[in-house]
Design a protein around this nucleic acid. Structure first.
Lengths: 160, 160
DNA sequence: TATTGTTATACTCTATAACTATA
DNA sequence: TATAGTTATAGAGTATAACAATA
């Protein structure tokens, strides 16, 4: 009779319970966020944008002549972390960065025509990506999701 | 009449609109996650735990003799990133890490008595922290939140 | 030939201190 | 004295390649 040896070792597929972690709403939010961030990265790659550069473009588009300090506050990031982001977007010709005559410390950030066009294209892709993630979910439940997330944000004690 | 010069420059408090970003569910989830992560960090600091060490302890407690590879999969992190986490928890005497006789490649991870006690204390604090974040929210809406987050997670295409 | 745990490495994100120029 | 933008730096978190031991 022939040898019957396991030619290889199967990966350990025994079921692992994460029920205790799943009881925590924060854990479920983190897992959903991981999935969203991964998908969004893929969605933005063709535009050579990251989450932070896309968010910055959106805020600059909505608030022309925004300063970097204002943008940092709106994005909840520290000012130094924004310098390279701004440098990247300006270097690609997507935003202009003009010194303000009345306060020569500050930069007025604005979308260029090219930046506005790229933002419009990226936004269309992001909206489509969101629609896919939310596919099959009752719009009323999505409204509830928004309301609950907003309430959690306000209930938090950390300055973010 | 006295000089009236602005002694200092007030920070730029002009209102910045983030309405466009707020339309994206992903952005709202990210903001809520930032608040939760910040609060959770504060909650876990007295126990000298981080989110990943707390999650690891919880999973080990629920799945005694878990291997590092299984734990990494359950936490959605790569195996190399778990080595220092395990080293930290074992070094503090919170978990044991025993070679398995039937497969001497793998480690069987278990909570020590001390680890189980710390986990119980930390879990109590985390639950209280969650209750504060969810204060005033209709339990039915929280159930909807869980359901929608789970659906988003399953709708995602990225391997997480 | 494949898996476990590990080492080394690198890249991103984020936070703080301190500098300059401006106010 | 304080703010805007910047530089330098450090710490997390995360990802890949490759190794020795083991299956």
């Amino acid at each position: 009779m022939a040898d019957r040896r396991p030619a290889r070792t199967a990966p350990d597929t025994r079921h692992v319970s994460d029920d205790a972690l799943r009881q925590l709403v924060g854990f479920n939010i983190k897992r959903a966020m991981n999935v969203i961030a991964g998908d969004l990265r893929t969605t933005l790659t063709p535009f050579e944008l990251r989450m932070v550069t896309y968010s910055a473009l959106t805020l600059i588009g909505d608030n022309p002549s925004l300063s970097q300090a204002q943008l940092a506050a709106a994005l909840s990031v520290e000012r130094p972390n924004l310098v390279n982001v701004i440098e990247e977007l300006a270097g690609r010709g997507l935003i202009s960065r003009d010194r303000v005559p009345t306060d020569r410390r500050t930069n007025a950030l604005r979308l260029t025509t090219q930046g506005a066009r790229l933002l419009a294209q990226a936004t269309e892709a992001v909206r489509a990506h969101e629609a896919q993630l939310l596919d099959g979910i009752d719009p009323a439940d999505i409204a509830t999701l928004r309301a609950v997330l907003g309430r959690i944000e306000r209930n938090g004690t950390e300055r973010i």
